[in-house]
Design a protein around this nucleic acid. Structure first.
Lengths: 109, 109
DNA sequence: ACCAGTACATAGTAGCGCTGAGTAGTGGCT
DNA sequence: AGCCACTACTCAGCGCTACTATGTACTGGT
């Protein structure tokens, strides 16, 4: 969707992935495929893996390695307590921003 | 509001300012004050001025210098045709993103 | 032997907002 | 006169995130 989307995804992509992971452990390839199915067709694989490395380093997810029927072993990520807390804060921040923008869009100014 | 907000503002702050400028020419100091009044209390002055320089360079706004009663002359920015078009695209992009996130928040996943 | 699909990794780049400092003009207070 | 607060703009350097491009590795079909 272009440069605007790229910039707008900064900060939100992490929240999107954390939200997807809620009660739904998944691995990188799967997450990428899901994002594409949601309309985020231009999100590069590398972006997702880098994000997963980051949230793991930040202690928001737990990781488990599982063999795959086809291809290399999968790294399955699941949200932990810190991740849930982080996700809650994400929703608060996003809620604030979305509210301001909705006002701007409807009120005109 | 912290680091999450900083990241999330990337891409959206420009849209917010362009939206404010719609039919409402304004100068930097004024825009900063307005943002603060809207709850964006942590947005630095430098950020706004840098953004204004950028959108001017990108040809989204017209600029007019006007003397001020108090302090240095003001640079008054007004949205031009390109800026309006850019703003429209911004709303499209944001609308897409907001819809996905709203689904994620309510549906659970 | 080759290729498509699955699955992960990573070095380098671009863009945006933040930090921190500086420059300048006006007016009020002591 | 000297100081400070407020108004108003500028800029170099930094941190973070997403993108680009490429590479590795395993499986199954032809």
């Amino acid at each position: 969707m272009g440069k605007q989307m790229t910039e707008m995804l900064k900060g939100t992509l992490e929240g999107i992935v954390l939200a997807f992971l809620t009660g739904n452990p998944a691995y990188g390839y799967e997450i990428t495929a899901w994002l594409r199915s949601q309309g985020f067709t231009e999100i590069a694989e590398g972006t997702v893996y880098a994000l997963l490395v980051r949230i793991e380093k930040n202690g928001l997810v737990d990781v488990e390695k599982r063999p795959s029927e086809k291809g290399p072993p999968r790294k399955v990520y699941s949200l932990n307590a810190d991740g849930e807390k982080h996700l809650e804060e994400f929703w608060t921040t996003w809620g604030f921003l979305a509210e301001r923008l909705e006002n701007l869009r409807t009120e005109g100014k």
